[in-house]
Design a protein around this nucleic acid. Structure first.
Lengths: 223, 223
DNA sequence: GCGCGGCTGGCAGTTTGCTGCCAAGTTTGA
DNA sequence: TCAAACTTGGCAGCAAACTGCCAGCCGCGC
């Protein structure tokens, strides 16, 4: 595409990134690795929606790795988003130290480096194609990846950040309330109450309510 | 019955007690209080069976109080027995200090005091009718009663003594196993497995599996 | 042997919990 | 103001769990 592989291209804002390099994201077929503070950094809302709404999965043969900071699990919704991705075969790891540079490397051939988050104005993105530079970025990425822990490991010992309502639901569950009663008490329909419970079970990584009760207590979420 | 109220009668063994004074037990209509190490002390096996098998409940107006030592909850079965009684309206309290004398007082009129548990031979029981003595025994009973805690309170902070199987079931529940799978793993039928689970829920004082999971963990029963 | 009580497992019926689907209401952003 | 996205709640079908009933088995004492 670019006549000169050694010419780095700097793009202004996610819109331009999407317009000029968006096709690269969808065309990965071997390896797609990404490092960011949280899933909001890359992918403007519309792209994210597209990916989450659709049942998108990495096609066979494509390895997708995402490396995030703990901030990526700051609230229920973010955490659920990660779990959704993980459920679709995306590998996710959490790196406790601040990620040096938000980065994407596609198929070992192309790297995109984000500039610092701007105080105002569009964020700058630089697309790199020089083989040596891409290889260097990629090897740094893997070094960090290897020293990070998986999402599952990270989540194991750490209570999820729950909304007030979720904590209230946990309380009611912990008191032994039937769904019917608890829903009425929260002025929720049975349907919605159970939706909430199911979401909480997901966050607690529990296969049964018994296990959820156990997990909730061992994570200190019940009083 | 006895021509002389001030004559104490000593009976040899539970058989004689049942024969000569058994009718008193069933005829209480106001107050029946009892202190013992555990429910096995009074009531020979046949009498116990009769009471537990039948759906016996204290008739309205009759207050039944039982004061036991913690030994009365030494194993699952004993504990379940107490819960059954409690469920039928019998008041039960647990006295941590060794009960000085195993005693029954019926309708403020008759007291039965057990002799020390014999090394061999029948245990001796003394039936007392003298109003002043009965009143004295009764007031001592109530003093002890008042300073003891209810069964519910006692159980709240204390893990029930569980059989190996029950602990194994708890483990499987805690791992999130479905009943089907867990039953197969224990070589139990689904029916029996669920029976066990229901029994454990009772012992844990739990209304739902979630609550059971919580209780089990907070009592330290899961690893 | 016989009967008895206790434990077990199968069956059936009920309750409780779970989830996809859709319609209606609400929020959001252009 | 309109449309798209999100949230909610009802419904329906299903899965999981709970329970009563009964028949069969086993160990016990007579």
């Amino acid at each position: 595409m670019s006549p000169d592989q050694d010419r780095n291209v700097t793009l202004r804002g996610e819109a331009e990134l999407a317009a000029r390099a968006g096709h690269l994201f969808g065309n990965a077929h071997e390896e797609f690795v990404c490092a960011a503070v949280d899933p909001n950094t890359w992918a403007a809302p519309d792209v994210r929606d597209q990916i989450l709404a659709s049942r998108w999965k990495p096609p066979p043969g494509l390895r997708v790795c995402k490396l995030y900071n703990p901030a990526a699990l700051a609230d229920e919704e973010s955490e659920r988003r990660l779990l959704t991705m993980a459920g679709r075969g995306v590998e996710i790891r959490i790196c406790p130290t601040r990620l040096p540079q938000e980065t994407i490397v596609i198929d070992r051939r192309i790297a995109v480096l984000a500039g610092p988050a701007p105080v105002q104005g569009p964020r700058m993105y630089t697309v790199v194609r020089s083989p040596e530079v891409v290889a260097g970025v990629r090897s740094l990425y893997w070094a960090t990846w290897e020293s990070s822990i998986t999402l599952a490991e990270y989540r194991r010992g750490r209570p999820p950040a729950l909304s007030d309502q979720s904590r209230e639901i946990l309380r009611l569950l912990g008191e032994g309330f039937k769904d019917e009663t608890a829903a009425r008490r929260l002025s929720l329909s049975l349907r919605t109450y159970r939706r909430r419970v199911a979401e909480i079970l997901t966050l607690l990584d529990a296969d049964s309510r018994f296990q959820a009760g156990r997990r909730a207590h061992e994570l200190g979420l019940l009083n």
